[in-house]
Design a protein around this nucleic acid. Structure first.
Lengths: 335, 335
DNA sequence: CTGTTAGCGCGTTCAC
DNA sequence: GTGAACGCGCTAACAG
């Protein structure tokens, strides 16, 4: 239905090569010719067939993005970070969300093969086994929030351990000595790192790290809500609670308030991520800010770099710093 | 780098046509031949080049999705709805978020042209002028949350007006007679409809609709937070506040609580959307549930229908019902 | 500067 | 059943 380059060429009385030249801005074409071609292209409402271009240029100018199912707020921010950079470079973004199941992820990756020039995969699970088996050698791949780099071109992580340690340190500075932790799923890489950060802060302050004080959760608000009760059952009672992410902290806050526990007076609380709502909780949630959008941006930037041969393809890594955000749930005065 | 169909054919000692046949499942091929081809394809790690397939089949099996910048849960949910359906039908999703600027949207649409078989565009602004000028005739387009259907194949909306009316009615049932509204931007279609619903509920109950009681916002938490002060300055004081979306309601709740206003005792509060956090606010936020994910699913379903000729391409419309969710911010007892 | 031509990788008639 | 050959729309040498 739409006009092809050939029709434009015929109508403008030039060759397809010339049309191609003027449309791709490049080469040398006589200004008069150029203008004439441009006009007839306009008149014919000519739109280049991107599929054909991709085929002949052997590049799709598209990156595939695979994200886990959860991470509601993250989803948006990461993609927007990627998308913004991509857009600026005339690249496109093909998304697909696996449901955190290995087999499904495999399927999705296979489906994207041949449609993308590179991949960005967020895979917070501990096992990252499928990469080398599923992704063809030579397809640049950026791994997000994943424990290992094997088979990937590059890995991007937050500084979870240090961030968590800073949060817990801050709680300690407030005078707390019995600090419980609401942990994430043990097979989640971020969750493990944050737990490790918690432990190292405790150790560094010569505080006992009682395993009973580590309560299991799964990063959902619901699990945080349910954990509140278990925290209150702890003996001796902790005076502070560090949740491995804000969603759980928000769930826990709700659960605590239902039990008339005052935060931070009866129990100080801190989270991780600094999701947008954290600031609007009452009290405001102290947390570690995680640059989600930046993660997406860096992922694309680096992908583009290896795509254009400016960066090696053999597994570098980078860590993005987090920042302690003091609000009032930890006991800090309102600013 | 990857193997082509030709190599498979040569290695298997058959023609490319045969390879193509077995790979596309169809036609009649001798079982022995089929198996042999399958094996060598496997051995060569053959992966069909999707770009080439698209070119020869004149279809990309890809849908483009254009969403406004407004971050938040919506983004994720709508895309996931679309993506899930697409995945099931072996389609792909190309995303791109405009920044709510017409010109930018145009650019993004143009960039996707020739790469997609259809478009899903969310455009809550009142003016939807660019469609017919920018989108080639014949490219199926589903419009989301938009006021008009001109030039689109189909339009999908929430029942904002009815939903808002129900929320306000509920507030009235609680005995409130002075109900203020925290409205969204006036150029936003959803916001206008919700305002209209508010007004009709008031009218229906013979309550005065004082314009002073309508406070302007922009759907962000921040605008809700700032609006809280203005609500408190109203005279006579309203006894209930209806926010046009949950984000603003959450911002307002925070602002009110900072002023020691008790919700719902001093001021009842209700929102709209039922975002995941609404339930975890303290008090729980009464709101209208909006099936965001379903919106995405329906969008793809219908797009596929027109793509396969099962549905007309000439501008039908559908409205998705919302549901009143009673929590405690309106004065309802905890369940 | 510009036109001709050969692919890009695959689906698909149309003969055999 | 199977193979040869053409075409999808465009880019990229290679000639002029």
């Amino acid at each position: 239905m739409p006009a092809t380059i050939r029709e434009v060429a015929r109508k403008a009385d030039v060759s397809v090569a010339t049309v191609s030249r003027v449309l791709n801005g490049s080469d040398s074409v006589r200004p008069a010719t150029r203008e004439h071609v441009l006009e007839t292209a306009q008149a014919l409402q000519y739109i280049p067939n991107e599929t054909a271009r991709s085929l002949s240029q052997k590049q799709t100018r598209t990156v595939g993005v695979l994200l886990p199912d959860m991470h509601g707020q993250f989803f948006a921010q990461v993609i927007q970070g990627i998308e913004e950079q991509a857009q600026a470079q005339n690249y496109h973004v093909l998304v697909s969300s696996s449901h955190s199941e290995e087999e499904e992820a495999r399927t999705m990756i296979r489906a994207m093969l041949g449609r993308v020039d590179g991949l960005v995969i967020m895979w917070p699970k501990s096992r990252v086994p499928f990469l080398s088996e599923t992704i063809p050698k030579g397809l640049p791949t950026i791994l997000l929030n994943a424990p290992a780099v094997e088979g990937a071109s590059f890995a991007l992580n937050f500084d979870n351990r240090r961030g968590a340690r800073n949060v817990v340190r801050h709680l300690i500075e407030h005078g707390h000595r019995r600090i419980a932790m609401l942990a994430g799923a043990s097979e989640n890489h971020d969750a493990r790192e944050r737990l490790a950060g918690y432990r190292s802060a405790l150790e560094e302050a010569d505080l006992a790290a009682d395993d009973d004080y580590v309560i299991g959760g799964d990063f959902t608000r619901e699990s945080g809500y349910e954990a509140a009760r278990r925290v209150l059952a702890l003996s001796p009672s902790p005076t502070a609670l560090f949740a491995a992410n804000d969603s759980m902290a928000i769930g826990a806050l709700r659960g605590l308030q239902e039990e008339d526990v005052r935060v931070p007076d009866d129990l100080a609380l801190a989270g991780f991520d600094d999701i947008p709502t954290a600031r609007f909780m009452m009290p405001g949630l102290t947390t570690a800010h995680v640059p989600m959008r930046r993660l997406g941006e860096r992922a694309f930037e680096h992908l583009l770099a290896v795509l254009s041969g400016e960066a090696p393809d053999d597994g570098g890594a980078e860590t993005l710093a987090t920042e302690l955000i003091r609000r009032t749930s930890c006991g800090c005065p309102p600013s």
